[in-house]
């Protein structure tokens, strides 16, 4: 099976594989960090270049209103991608045996359906919020149990859970739209200060909170340790399984939270949440190019989310066919990963 190779082949590694880091002698490591800086600056330069181009080509692009709208539209995908980032950090960047949560999008769909159904049944927002977050947390707990107790690789465990969750959503909604309108939901989807949507502030606030915990606390540092070198983390006395469980619980909670945001954004729960999955995976993986050492970070994931959203928005403003968006996303990830892989290979020589 995939998990019983102690030295995964390079072709299987995600970027930043421990194998690369372990093989590197001091000098190549220096070269690699230079290359990493170049790549990071390069991707930031591309991001800014795209923004500058759009702002010249479509004058409306840089207006506060438009930027606020893009931020608001990114809220759902951003929260999901941040949840996935936590799992990738804790599980390591090898996407098959390491951290991945394929159930996130379905989780959002079911949580949204639970929220909308509770509102329909006449319950208040408090209970609906608890229901949605509880649903997300429960899904995270099932994932965590399947991975840490039964020992199923995350890719498969979350795939199976995704199927169950998507089925439960269909059972609950009978594959229809469940409308939901409450004061809380309208407040969440309304425009806030400066005409910027409240959802935009929610995204920024949530990112700040997640980044604070993951990047700036001992807990976050240990999370990285568990993902990058599980053996070393275990030898240092960290309870690896506990961290992985926590990461999947956090990711489940993010799914529930994104569900609430989507009920507010769409005024109810809708079908087709599963379509969010692959774009979210791409965004979370793309995020590492915006970090200093090409690691998955919360800030990097936010930048990647915004990058994709600004691209879509710019295309719309310039009347470029939206069919190009998925192609651009695909090319982006291939370019980024190719560049990373080639630079690492060069650095190791």
């Amino acid at each position: 099976m995939l998990v019983d190779t102690s030295y995964p082949p390079p072709s299987l590694d995600g970027f930043n594989s421990p194998a690369h880091a372990a093989e590197g002698t001091p000098k190549p490591v220096h070269g690699r960090s230079l290359a990493a800086v170049a790549l990071r600056q390069g991707s930031l330069a591309v991001f800014i270049g795209v923004l500058v181009y759009f702002s010249f080509a479509a004058p409306f692009f840089l207006s506060i209103g438009n930027i606020g709208n893009v931020l608001g539209q990114s809220a759902i995908a951003g929260v999901l991608a941040i949840g996935l980032t936590v799992v990738i950090i804790a599980g390591g960047s090898n996407v098959v045996t390491g951290g991945i949560d394929l159930s996130l999008a379905a989780n959002m769909g079911l949580s949204a359906a639970v929220y909308a159904s509770l509102v329909q049944a006449g319950y208040g927002d408090g209970l609906a919020v608890a229901g949605a977050l509880g649903t997300g947390l429960l899904i995270g707990a099932v994932n965590a149990a399947a991975i840490t107790l039964a020992g199923i690789v995350p890719l498969l465990a979350t795939l199976a859970v995704m199927n169950i969750v998507a089925g439960l959503e269909l059972v609950l909604t009978q594959n229809t739209v469940v409308p939901a309108a409450t004061d809380f939901l309208s407040a969440l989807s309304a425009a806030g200060p400066f005409g910027i949507p409240v959802l935009a502030f929610v995204l920024l606030g949530f990112t700040a909170l997640a980044a604070g915990v993951v990047q700036y606390t001992p807990l976050g540092l240990r999370l990285y340790a568990v993902g990058e070198f599980p053996e070393a983390a275990r030898a240092a006395g960290l309870r690896v399984k506990l961290f992985i469980t926590g990461a999947f619980l956090a990711s489940g909670l993010c799914g529930g939270f994104a569900g609430i945001l989507s009920v507010s954004y769409l005024s109810g729960s809708t079908t087709g949440a599963g379509d969010m999955l692959l774009p979210v995976v791409v965004t979370a993986l793309l995020g590492s190019v915006f970090s200093r050492r090409l690691l998955p970070t919360i800030g990097g994931t936010l930048l990647a989310t915004l990058f994709v959203s600004f691209l879509i928005n710019g295309f719309q403003l310039l009347n470029i066919s939206s069919t190009l968006v998925s192609g651009v996303q695909g090319l982006l990830i291939l370019l980024v990963v190719s560049a990373t892989t080639l630079l690492q290979r060069k650095g190791n020589q």
Binding site: L12, V95, V96, L285, L334, S338, L342
Partner: peptide
């Protein structure tokens, strides 16, 4: 290029 199969 050497990209991991999942990402490629």
């Amino acid at each position: 290029i050497g990209i991991s199969p999942f990402l490629a």
